[in-house]
Design a protein around this nucleic acid. Sequence first.
DNA 1: TCAGTTACGTATCGATCGGTACGTAAATAG
DNA 2: CTATTTACGTACCGATCGATACGTAACTGA
Lengths: 214, 214
Amino acid sequence: MAPGGRPRAFEPEAALDAAVETFWRHGYDAAGVAELTGAMGISRPALYRAFGDKAQLFSAALERYIARNMEYVEAALAKPTAREVAESFLVGNAEAVTTPGRPPGCLSVQAMVTDEADAFSLLAKNRLAIQERLSARFRRAIRDGDLPYHEDAEELSRFMITLTTGFAIRAADGEPRQALIALARRALAVFPEPESAIPTQTPSHPNSKGMTHD
Amino acid sequence: MAPGGRPRAFEPEAALDAAVETFWRHGYDAAGVAELTGAMGISRPALYRAFGDKAQLFSAALERYIARNMEYVEAALAKPTAREVAESFLVGNAEAVTTPGRPPGCLSVQAMVTDEADAFSLLAKNRLAIQERLSARFRRAIRDGDLPYHEDAEELSRFMITLTTGFAIRAADGEPRQALIALARRALAVFPEPESAIPTQTPSHPNSKGMTHD
DNA sequence: TCAGTTACGTATCGATCGGTACGTAAATAG
DNA sequence: CTATTTACGTACCGATCGATACGTAACTGA
């Protein structure tokens, strides 16, 4: 009734990894099906049988990419202070987009320039999800007194995403890892210093504990 | 001996403007010759007669784009202090990549994702030229005592370019102008404070439009 | 053994890609 | 007028695009 049929002659996950690498290196449009099948080591119809079409293959590749190359986001969000979250996120991204043995840059950014609306919206959704998580984390930091109450959590998270987007492009452009890490560290200047002067432009702050003076 | 021949039936500069817009909106690869000729209002052979081939057309379009949409770079470099250079550069870029009536983002960044080595190297050369001019300006600022002697001019210029690259991508992603300008102002925190004044916060009611740049 | 099911790959589809051959139209020079 | 020069656009080139038709191979259950 339900015979198995002929078994697969390749590992779908290994093939998907090759697809990730190809999309990563060339973006969505520039990664042709011929190049994909070549990298994946399978025939063209095998690709369509296993993954549907190019768009679905990209969707699966993006999902795998996120799971395998963006753990640094989780690690960063788990840091105890907002500043450490930011540093971990920025440095982790700088490292992720310059990992030796992997294509420089970020699949999400490389593939962004495409006319395929479906693929584009996938990427936008992913970016927005990360930004929202960062923003929520910063809002919590504001509630906890970890960030000044007048701080703009959404703007901070936008800053993070914008900078890491720039990292991805610059990495693809050949910028070395150390240069990007240095930029990440420098960018932390946009955060209020943890124990030095906070610009006092708001007089009525009820909280007196831990107030700093210079 | 040297008759004029049949005159052109179109304005090459107007056609080039349309090519700029098309490349700007879609990037190099995704801008097909059919779409280009459609936007330029000329036939396919007319394009090749007037501009050589697609790569040369892009080169001409990039040159025109730079001349017409990157005056903010010159304006920024002419500012008296390093901090004003940075602010003018960042804000000018944020405005340039979100100019109403023009495609969001930056032609140089949109076209970056391409397998055409020639087009890519053109863009890299342009980026590098801007970064070098910024770096030279900051080195001068260090010599003049406008920046601390231990400051890293090259790293500062890298920071600027990386951030504006991120601006371009985010603008193409739909980020509104005011959000990018806010990020530009915030990014100035990486500069040493000029000891006296904290830069004025964004006014509560931003001036509607009619900014100078183009 | 044989029917049912699934994966295999060759060979091919129509559409689109960047780029041109070629006959014609419009200007100038004599 | 004719000759020369240059731009015009239809119609087409080979290559490549994403996607499939189809005959064959390999497995399971009866």
